[in-house]
Structure formats: C-alpha cells, structure tokens
Design a binder for these strands. Structure first.
Lengths: 215, 215
DNA sequence: GTCTATACGTTGATAGAC
DNA sequence: GTCTATCAACGTATAGAC
C-alpha cells in the first residue's frame, strides 16, 4: 500500500521534460503538505498551494476535485510520515521492546523533519473540530496505533519485560499522547524539549526501567 | 479570582433587565469560547458568534475591536479553565507531590468539561501555525507550566520522593505532553481513553511508584 | 449599545477556450 | 493539462443612523 496512485508507465517520465500527470500530482501533494502544516487545513488556501506549485487554482483543482480531496491525498501520502509508517510495516514490524524503541527512534528522526511534525500536530488537533474532513482519518489512526502499542506491550510482557500490574491500554494511550504533546511543545520552543529523550523517559518509566544514573 | 473584569457597580446589575456592558462582554466571551472550541479560531466566524449571542456581527465588534481581540479575551478568561488555574494559585499552590496530584485531579474534572478540553486541544495546536494570534500566549503558557512542574518535582525530590536520576525538565515536559495528547485522543474516542487514570499512571511511573496490583 | 449598510478582500468551485 | 473568466458565498471591519 505504498503507492496509492496507479502510475501508468507511458505517462511517467522523470527526465527534465514536461512533468507527467503523476509527477504533477506528487508535486502538488508535497506542497499541499507543507501548506497544511504551516497554516492548518482551514486557513490554507488553494490559491497559495497553486501559486507555490506554479499553477493557477483551477489547475490544482484539475488534479484534485476539491480542497478536502487534496487533504485526503496528503494524508494518504503517509508512508513517508511519522508514526504512520509503522502501520505500513504490517507483519514485519518490530516486536515487543523493539517496537517501543522504534517509536523513540521515530521521535529522534522527527526532530529533523519539522514539516511532518507540524503537519500531524496541527491536523490531528484540528480534526476534532466539527465536520473536519480528517476526523475519521485520525480516529482510525489513533485506534490503530493504540492497538499496535498494546500488542507490543503484550509481547514485551510475555518476555517478562513489563511490570505485572501495568495496564497495556492505558500505557499505549500514554505513549502516543506524550509523543503528540511533545510535538506541540517542541514546535513552540525547540530548545526546551527533547522529543526523543522524553519519549524514551516515559516508555522506560512505564516499563519499570531504572532511570539513567539513578535507582 | 473568578472575576477578571473590574465590575463597576453602577453598570452591573444582574436582575432581569437589559444586560450591562460587562454582562454582555461576559456572555459574548462565553459563546466565543464555545465557538472557538468547536470550530477552531480560523474557522470560527464572527457572524456565528454574533448570532449565538443574539447580536449582529457589528454588535460583537463594538465590544471587541477585532476577532483576534476576542480570542485574547477568551484566553484571558483562563481562571475557569483547565491547567491554567494553577498559574492563578500563585504562591498558594500545592507543593511537591500534592501539585502533581492536582494535575491528575484536573484531568479527572476535565472529563466533564468537554468545552474546555476542546478549546485547549484545538487552540494550542493551531497556535503553532504561522502568524497565529495565540502563539505567544501558548509559548508563555507552556514555559510557565513546565517551570511549575519542574519546581514541584524539585520539592518532591527534596522530600526524597523522586528517583535520584530523574531529569526534572524532561519529566515536566512529559507530564504536560501526556495531558495534552490525551485530550485529543479522548475527544476523538472518549470511551477509549481515561485521561485521569492515564495521567496518574505516567506521573506514578516517572516517580517510581509501583504500578497498582503489581510490583 | 446596537443596528443597517456597505466596503472590500478572499474563498472554493465551475465553465469553457486553447 | 492548464489557463482565463466568472461566480456566489463568506470573511472582517468600518461608517453612520438611531
């Protein structure tokens, strides 16, 4: 599921010539992602996305039938993004503690991908507003992510790596919540927050791992 | 500290007659709060706020000079809200572990105040978008809250209630982050998330408190 | 203090030429 | 596939009557 577009070979050419329709779509999506991340969905305008794409507004709407459709397209580009890539890993994802370590690693990488961080921070919260076109996307996303973390905690528990009384569902919510919350704090004050270290701190604490240098 | 306005006695009357200016302002702010919480700032319109207030749009702008001014007014109403009431407590706030317990209590109460939860979830994330009028407010808010939690952890540490190696600043970010992140998850799926219990779980884990029923 | 009227920009979307 | 032209709707804000 990494390629939502049906890229027809006869129209796809990556040389310096005129971009194919698929390439245009991809370019528009890339710019739309940045714009939604910077402005939020409602405050972003097709005109701005169009201008930055070197097209007119009508040109953009030739490739995506509506603004909401454009947002959907951006969210479907999730394979490059953030946590959601984990959903792409399918059955090959890391198990148990390794999965939780993967979350920390994701947080670390995200500190160098502000655009992605911003996109998810802004859109996930905006999605709770009434009638937001991404509401179902985020509801499903959180449900899926929670289930994955619950599963990983279960695997770790089977290996005896989790304190006996830990509620896996609460812990899963907590891990995802701390990652989300850190994004906003980090965007507002990057020097004051270490997303990876703090995520690791919480995961370690939940698992009963001794704090570094302490007891 | 429940009355931010300087209520001038000669204009303030709470009988059934025509509302005073101060009462009008308060009513508009209440409705604006709900509207910003439901729609977000950018997607909320003065027309909707006005209609729900029983005024025209021009009527609303007589009391607040601009939409941004209205948002500022809403945020200044923070004494009824959420975490921010802690900032109001000033020197009388609970200390050490009691402060952290207060955060959990706040989360518990918030489960019955969806409007406040929604307002802060939506606006805090929206504030990271470019040029957002509440950006400075939230930057200062997080800085202040982090400092308060750091201080509380320090007090708890002095009482020997904190693991030796715990980084107070990371822990403070983590506690606030988990509370923020839980808000979004809870708004999207209230039955799947227990904000208070999960906040308590994280705080307890960071403090090295044994998990309930386990060890 | 509230209204009507209005100015004036911006929005998303469509129609149709090329 | 991209454009120009156009649209109706909506946005905030102001002026001025009452």
């Amino acid at each position: 599921m990494t390629r939502p577009e049906t890229s027809r070979p006869e129209t796809s050419r990556s040389d310096g010539g005129r971009p194919s329709a698929a390439e245009r779509r991809e370019e528009i999506l890339r710019i739309a992602m940045e714009t939604f991340a910077t402005r939020g969905y409602h405050n972003a305008s097709l005109a701005e996305i169009a201008e930055r794409s070197g097209l007119t507004q009508a040109g953009v709407l030739h490739h995506f039938r509506s603004k909401a459709g454009l947002l959907t397209g951006v969210l479907d580009l999730r394979d490059q993004s953030d946590l959601a890539q984990l959903a792409q890993l399918g059955e090959e994802r890391p198990r148990g503690l390794a999965f939780l370590a993967h979350l920390v690693e994701t947080a670390r990488r995200n500190a160098e991908r502000e655009g992605i961080v911003r996109l998810y921070a802004v859109l996930s919260a905006e999605s709770v507003t009434s009638g937001h076109p991404a509401q179902e996307y985020f509801r499903a996303r959180y449900a899926g992510l929670r289930a994955m973390v619950v599963e990983a905690i279960g695997e770790a528990a089977d290996a005896g790596e989790v304190p006996a009384g830990l509620d896996p569902r609460a812990a899963a919510s907590a891990v995802l919540a701390v990652m989300d919350g850190l994004r906003v704090q980090w965007l507002l004050a990057p020097e004051a927050v270490d997303m990876a270290a703090t995520t690791d701190l919480v995961i370690g604490a939940l698992l009963g791992r001794p704090v570094p240098g302490g007891g």
